[in-house]
Design a protein around this nucleic acid. Sequence first.
DNA 1: TGTTAGCACTCAACGCAAAAGAGTGCTAAT
DNA 2: ATTAGCACTCTTTTGCGTTGAGTGCTAACA
Lengths: 344, 344
Amino acid sequence: MELNERKERILEVIIRSYIDTAEPVGSRTVAKQFKQSISAATIRNEMSDLEDMGFLVQPHTSAGRIPTQKAYRYYVDSIMKVKQLEEVLKRDIHEGYLKVAGDLEDIMTYTTNLLSDLTKYASVVLSPKVTWANCKHLQIIPVFKERVLVVVVTTEGFVENIELNLSKELTIQDSLRLSNIINSLLGGLHASEINHNLIDELANVTLEEKVLLREIVIGVQEALFEHHSQVMSTGVTNLLDYPEFADTDRVRHLVKVSQKKNILAEALIGDHYSEVLRITIGDENKGEELKELSLITTTYELQDNIIGAIGVIGPTRMQYDHVSSMLEYIRHEINQNLLKILLD
Amino acid sequence: MELNERKERILEVIIRSYIDTAEPVGSRTVAKQFKQSISAATIRNEMSDLEDMGFLVQPHTSAGRIPTQKAYRYYVDSIMKVKQLEEVLKRDIHEGYLKVAGDLEDIMTYTTNLLSDLTKYASVVLSPKVTWANCKHLQIIPVFKERVLVVVVTTEGFVENIELNLSKELTIQDSLRLSNIINSLLGGLHASEINHNLIDELANVTLEEKVLLREIVIGVQEALFEHHSQVMSTGVTNLLDYPEFADTDRVRHLVKVSQKKNILAEALIGDHYSEVLRITIGDENKGEELKELSLITTTYELQDNIIGAIGVIGPTRMQYDHVSSMLEYIRHEINQNLLKILLD
DNA sequence: TGTTAGCACTCAACGCAAAAGAGTGCTAAT
DNA sequence: ATTAGCACTCTTTTGCGTTGAGTGCTAACA
């Protein structure tokens, strides 16, 4: 749906104002922004049109108008421009990353806090998922009786712990030998090539060891498959400060959402087609729980593979432009930092 | 401060009623509980006395009275009796633990949920802290360049990961050899005996290896020292249902507290003198943030060492007796389960 | 002397109506 | 097509009497 220029400008003013104040916007307020070049009455007519077109609604007859989700969508698609972050801010952020560089977990926590601090909304960060396909090295450590700990290290240098119960208790020697067998396989082959049959055909390995190896490989594969990447989130308390979350029911709902890591993870994963930034507004969100919120997400990469995502959750009247710039830059910083870890 | 029997009974009725309803209690309400054996007027006199003594306050002249923190303290110390949990409930809880037995993390999450579900308050669980003193086995795994992962396994079968940056990159062989050296030390000595000097005096170890060993031991010790035990918490949303948290400011405050894991951890650790249960009411809490809440905590043990704590956070008008019974029994269950893991 | 009935008094809470205020839609003039 | 003017609508605020729960005091009573 295309709008003529004046309608578009009016819509923009209304959206901007509503994002700022959370108050319905009246024709006079809009007129003031136009410095008397158009009268309030004209704007009233235009606003009435915009309402008919589904861009605005009135909470009640004698109130101003507020933007609909359709309006936000139009704003995000056609009006808003994502600016570069100011240099000062960029520098500050960059310096922050310098301090945490090197440690993946630190980068992730720093990012989570940074996002919620700078945007004043809630932030979600999905840390890289360790997958069997990237497995480079593996270490088996006996913990207690038949229980062992398998530590998986990926080619990117990420680490994951998996606890398994085997059919037999291992000595330290056993565990070293088994680790060695798997690691020498990993040295020559790609992890995905290691399977059931391959283990059966190994030479110089007793039948008992084969059983254990199979238990371990399958156990690890299953665990990694089921294991979600870590979801970190902060800043729900930021959201509580906005008037739309003034009543207790909304708060309760919000707190519950923030605790359901899986909902957040799902929302963050979504489909990232070609665009870098993905913005979903209110109902556009998959989860029922996020219908009254907006989400802006982006991904981060290592060697052209998407390995995680970061995002910001806010009210539908979110500062889309500002948050977008922020995410774009922070995504860039993360990519740089991950690369640095890899090449260091 | 001692109260005569009648005052004590009146105070008890008022506290019970206020815990139930969160409404100020009037003389007539109390009189009804006494089945006309005392008149409302007499109770009014007694209540006036109790107010002078600091056990009751009036929100305003024409309202009933509500208990002060002093009253709750008196109730907890001198009136309340901690009953045994009903058998049915005990059985349910026990069966729940059977399902998660074996995995420490599962036990902890189950406990957290159980506590908040049963009490309808918020629960906090401090999982066992891995300390150097209990270190039984240790495994060094190269991750990337100079970065290594050290996996620590304690005598209790708990596991902790520590990432360190060493001064030199290790090969897999190096890391195995270094792990072996430390593990053979751990085999003969108690972990606390391993220090700087001991490493210097080792035979059959090159100077370079000694440097690395020192880096590792010190790095692990520092990391374990700084590493807090994990804090888990649920059920803040439960608290939002109570009328005392109806206004938004309180809610915001509450949500913020629940997110500050360190405050919760500190509150849980506290000083557990001789008593099993520790009850702190309102102002008695250390943190400024908990001044309007009450806390009941208890510890759990393994082989006579306190290794963690569990607790419930609620409004000051908390069901002290009920929560106490609950905690007492759950503590018992945890102890049993940990012992089972150890002996399994 | 301790207990109780009775009564005047206090004060939050509730309901209701009037007033204020913000904003619209319509009409008629430009 | 634009605009000024105005009646109309509906929320919000304010003020005010009413209600009701609960107290404290006094005087009578056991």
